[in-house]
Design a protein around this nucleic acid. Structure first.
Lengths: 159, 159
DNA sequence: ATATGTGCAAAGAGTTTGCATAACT
DNA sequence: AGTTATGCAAACTCTTTGCACATAT
């Protein structure tokens, strides 16, 4: 049992509830997809697919795409482009927040930046009428890639 | 003659110089591609292609891809994913900086946020070993889309 | 002269879609 | 029962690649 499991379970139930409330059906595939997407951190569609196939080998990739896309339209998921050319999904925290994206391996993680509202305010001042949300993507190298890439020199400045 | 033309001309020369310095050749196609990419603001590959074709109808899309990709590898261009599923390029400012990306139409623009270093520092504190660059993408709605989308209510919070 | 770049068309990767079948409510 | 979801395969979009021909240096 890992820390966060209870939060995850609650979130799964919450999503299933929203699916029902919007007239959608709760199928085993959808449950498995939602579970898998929440269990791994900002997984790509392919990663969700692979995880689901362990339990339900008959699940199709198309269904994974359709389900995640539906959740995004319901406001229960956020899709993020990544440097690995794959769509990643965040089902745990659908409201706009900060992410870190690895330029090298495509990994994505949340960034609990407490000053996020201030950052958006400051950016809005020079945005000429653009209405910025609190979704901010910070690009860089994840801990693993940072070690492999440039132990000494900081060549990420041009990344 | 528009403001910024001199800056653009200088930047074009600078890039051509770097191409030569790295053993590359300066072809009419490359000049046209670089000019077009700098003249329009964070254009997609397709937009560069269309602009180039006005002057050089024989230029191929593959060459546009190859040229922009080469410039990115040389550190003279930055590619950005966008909500329109197309690669956009920034040739004017290759060093990491802040962008604003429109969730609706895919437009991209620079954001001259003076406190960018502070933002990255703060985000780094909660990034567990990730090495963040100064490339930050702010998501929102551009001025045009902001007007069309939600004059009254702010439904961008979930975007 | 020779290495490098271009254009075309084909191949790739990721994502979406149409439709017959299956299954939730 | 009747609507909704699934799975398969085909289609689509964006991007990359191979190779013969052209061209910058």
């Amino acid at each position: 049992m890992c820390p966060g499991d209870k939060t995850q379970t609650r979130r799964i139930d919450e999503i299933l509830e929203k699916v029902r409330a919007s007239g959608g059906r709760v199928t085993p595939q959808r449950v498995a997809i939602i579970k898998a997407a929440i269990a791994s951190d900002h997984p790509s569609v392919e990663q969700v697919y692979q995880a689901v196939r362990v339990e339900f080998p008959m699940t199709s990739l198309a269904t994974v795409y359709k389900t995640l896309s539906m959740l995004q339209e319901m406001g229960q998921a956020v899709s993020l482009g990544s440097s690995d050319d794959a769509l990643h999904y965040d089902l745990l925290t659908p409201d706009p927040h900060a992410h870190a994206l690895c330029l090298r391996c495509g990994r994505v993680r949340d960034l609990p930046v407490s000053t996020l509202p201030d950052m958006v305010s400051e950016a809005s001042e020079v945005a000429d009428g653009w209405r910025l949300t609190r979704r901010i993507d910070f690009w860089g190298l994840c801990d693993d890639c940072a070690h492999e890439a440039a132990p000494a020199e900081d060549r990420t400045e041009r990344a």
